[in-house]
Computed example of a mutant assay.
Amino acid sequence: MSKKVGGERLIIHGHLSTREVYEYRQEGWRLEWRDRPVKAQVNRNGIPKGLKGAV
């Protein structure tokens, strides 16, 4: 969640309950969704997939 105060952007992140989200939105906070970074897939030897011809 984020909120602009005096030209600064305040951010709250983490797990919030539905009630907490409701209360923050009543105070003017905006809800933002951020996807987790995609984890690189590796084969059983620990070598990243998709590196054809890199070796």
Rank of each mutant, 00 (worst) to 15 (best):
G6L: 04
M1G: 08
E27H: 06
V38C: 06
Y22R: 12
L16I: 05
G6R: 02
L51C: 06
V42C: 08
K49A: 07
R9F: 00
W29S: 01
R19P: 02
G14L: 04
G14I: 02
E27W: 07
K4W: 11
R30K: 14
S17F: 03
G50W: 03
N43T: 00
R25Q: 15
H13T: 12
H15V: 13
W33H: 15
R30E: 15
Y24S: 03
V38I: 14
V38S: 08
Q41D: 14
Y22D: 09
V5T: 08
R9D: 03
K39P: 06
Q41N: 14
R19I: 10
N43L: 05
H13V: 05
I11H: 01
E32A: 05
L16Y: 02
H13W: 07
K49E: 15
Y24F: 15
R36S: 09
V42T: 11
L51S: 03
S17V: 01
P37F: 01
V21T: 08
Y24V: 04
L51N: 05
G14M: 00
G53I: 04
S2Y: 10
R25A: 06
S2N: 09
G7S: 02
S2G: 12
P48F: 03
R9I: 10
N45S: 09
N43D: 15
I11W: 01
K49D: 11
L16D: 01
V42Q: 06
N45W: 13
G50H: 04
G50Y: 04
P37H: 05
R44N: 07
M1D: 05
V38R: 13
G46D: 01
K49L: 15
W33P: 05
G46S: 01
E23W: 08
K3M: 06
I11F: 03
L16W: 04
K49Y: 11
P37S: 04
K4R: 11
G50C: 01
R44Q: 08
G6V: 01
E8F: 08
Q26F: 02
E32Q: 09
N45H: 12
E32T: 05
G28E: 02
W29E: 00
N45D: 14
V42H: 08
S2E: 15
K52Q: 10
R30W: 05
G50P: 00
E23I: 07
R36Y: 08
R25G: 08
A54L: 15
E20I: 04
G50V: 02
S17R: 04
I12M: 07
K4N: 10
R36F: 09
Y22V: 06
R36W: 08
K52N: 10
G14H: 03
E23P: 00
L31T: 08
L16S: 00
G7W: 03
R44T: 06
T18V: 12
Y24N: 07
W33L: 15
R19Q: 13
G7V: 00
K4I: 14
E8I: 06
